[in-house]
Design a protein around this nucleic acid. Structure first.
Lengths: 340, 340
DNA sequence: TTGTAGGCGTTATCAG
DNA sequence: CTGATAACGCCTACAA
């Protein structure tokens, strides 16, 4: 039997409602009684029952994090940790707690989210939008529940607040970087095409080539998972070609690492025999051998801004829809060489 | 205004309490009314209010994850992702949600935990026990609240259920492995000595040397953070010695990577000029150049068993204290060489 | 400035 | 097998 507001009230010789008001720091309570009540709280070691409070006030101060389907892939990627760190820091500043979904399939996650939302367990959601997630988003839009997505929503882009990089431009820039190094046989190794981020980056790559009057070749574009394994398969295909590429745009550091490993087994030297640029600039990029030139997309900020913006939405339901673009930056290391 | 149990009751022509019983699948309700009630729930799109349920039943089906202080270090380490994945999977199987602390300092985290516990927000806790955390643990023990720790508690080991590896033995084994390769100048690069895991591994290392009749040298033992940077500083010190070590036992893959990087800059070849074994066997170990020989400590299982065992404690308050040892395994790759 | 009373949506206890 | 009714602990009109 734990200490309730009534126990405090009794000890302080006031009504329970007064105690409640003191907790909320209601200005209409005299300083004197506030002091008395606070003393009683201390004495009894009182801590408010957050559940009861939530029930009465219909708000929880909890943020939900919706993991993408096939979460095992994301758990492997350092990207996730950094987003989480950003979310955590932001949530903490605004005194929100963080709760995450644990489901694996799309259906499980959908059910979990509905439970969270209808069950009143969270005040808002951050979607780690990986796959196209139609059903879930339309549900949330219809129920008018506060949420933001990290990445670009597959559709209804104009009606959903989202935090993203300008992936199109970033990809164009890295490709132009390679072009400036005199490469013209540049291949693209991407994640699943179901992901908007992959598409954006692919388009940026294509745009840069087209602007440079270089014909696009289908054989130069391959796809896989955001995992190290997929990099290995991809590179094999590319090197079998009659005119193998001299440079690679890889959409993820982890994949790039797989590529490099494979290349190494084939006795090709990255930064000499072949050039690589990749995306995300996680710790691995710096630690790779040779260190990878990579686009830093500021992952922490993606998370930080995401949490900040759901909270904005929660606290002001008429907060406008926003599209927040986190800046990126090319970090040049030594995985690329200038061609003569 | 959302659908409540009363609305369902009205539509199904029963009392609210009956609806509640149907939700709980109480066997004393006739199949027929169950069917009727369920139909009504479907029709109205009813979802139970979990907050209200929690208030009435005094249980939340939520697990709390207590992050270590200075969480930024752990966020950088792939170790964390894997533990989280294990926790998530286990929690999901038992239909528990997962909520994590977001505080940064020891004090903030303590306050957060007290709020969670007294506030009734979680049914149990998993402590990612990094630093010595006296105050928090004694609070939890005194309040008799269900919790387990991942790693070995600094004290009260016999009274706290914890999930750990046999780090002493693991360290002894890797050291013996190096000894078998004819190394006798073996150094130890460890994380903070405040961490029990570091101490255990150091002791194992020392034991192996002593058993082999090799004198311990203080200069051969250096410490840092569980971060890549600390590896760099550590190795510099060691190589300045008159008799620099020929082999290194490093307590974390990330640190080992830092070491390797530094070594590389100094034009020393790992696996030839110097041998390295490390701990954890995260993805990076496999991807390193050369691939790192590392002790696989089965991180996923640490998380999985942790969640499983708090839940056991929650559901049976008289569950005995347990010490669960997750098996480890030396994964030999190519970072070590046999000395002639 | 403070107290009273009703309600938040469930579950649990007791009757019947 | 089912229905009232009283908690659960807090918040918030409305009164005083």
């Amino acid at each position: 039997m734990s200490i309730t507001i009534k126990d405090v009230a009794k000890l302080a010789n006031v009504a329970p409602s007064t105690v409640s008001r003191v907790i909320a720091d209601n200005p209409r309570i005299s300083e004197e009684t506030k002091k008395r009540v606070r003393k009683a709280m201390k004495e009894l070691g009182y801590h408010p029952n957050l559940i009861a409070r939530s029930l009465a006030s219909k708000s929880t101060s909890v943020l939900g994090l919706v993991m993408p389907e096939s979460a095992d892939v994301i758990f492997q990627n350092p990207f996730f940790s950094s987003v989480l760190q950003g979310l955590s820091e932001s949530a903490h500043e605004k005194m929100y707690a963080l709760q995450m979904t644990t489901g694996k399939t799309k259906e499980e996650i959908y059910e979990e989210v509905v439970q969270m939302v209808q069950g009143g367990r969270v005040d808002g959601l951050v979607l780690l939008n990986s796959r196209v997630e139609d059903k879930l988003m339309s549900y949330l839009m219809n129920s008018n529940f506060p949420f933001v997505v990290i990445g670009k929503p597959y559709k209804n882009e104009e009606q959903i607040t989202h935090i993203d990089n300008d992936n199109f431009r970033a990809a164009r820039e890295v490709t132009e970087y390679l072009l400036a190094l005199n490469h013209d046989r540049i291949a693209f190794i991407g994640g699943s095409l179901e992901l908007v981020v992959t598409v954006d980056r692919l388009l940026g790559y294509e745009k840069a080539l087209r602007d440079a009057n270089i014909t696009l070749r289908d054989e130069y574009v391959v796809h896989g998972e955001f995992l190290e394994e997929s990099g290995r398969g991809a590179i094999l295909e590319l090197l079998k070609l009659d005119e193998p590429p001299t440079a690679l745009v890889v959409t993820d550091d982890l994949v790039a690492l797989g590529v490099m490993h494979m290349l190494d087994e084939m006795e090709m030297t990255v930064g000499k025999d072949i050039s690589i640029v990749s995306f995300n600039n996680v710790l691995l990029a710096r630690m790779a051998q040779p260190p990878l030139t990579s686009i830093d997309i500021n992952i922490f900020s993606l998370g930080y801004e995401a949490a900040k913006n759901v909270i904005l939405k929660i606290e002001n339901p008429r907060e406008p829809v926003k599209r927040i673009i986190i800046p990126h930056k090319l970090v040049v290391r030594s995985s690329c060489q200038k061609l003569e």
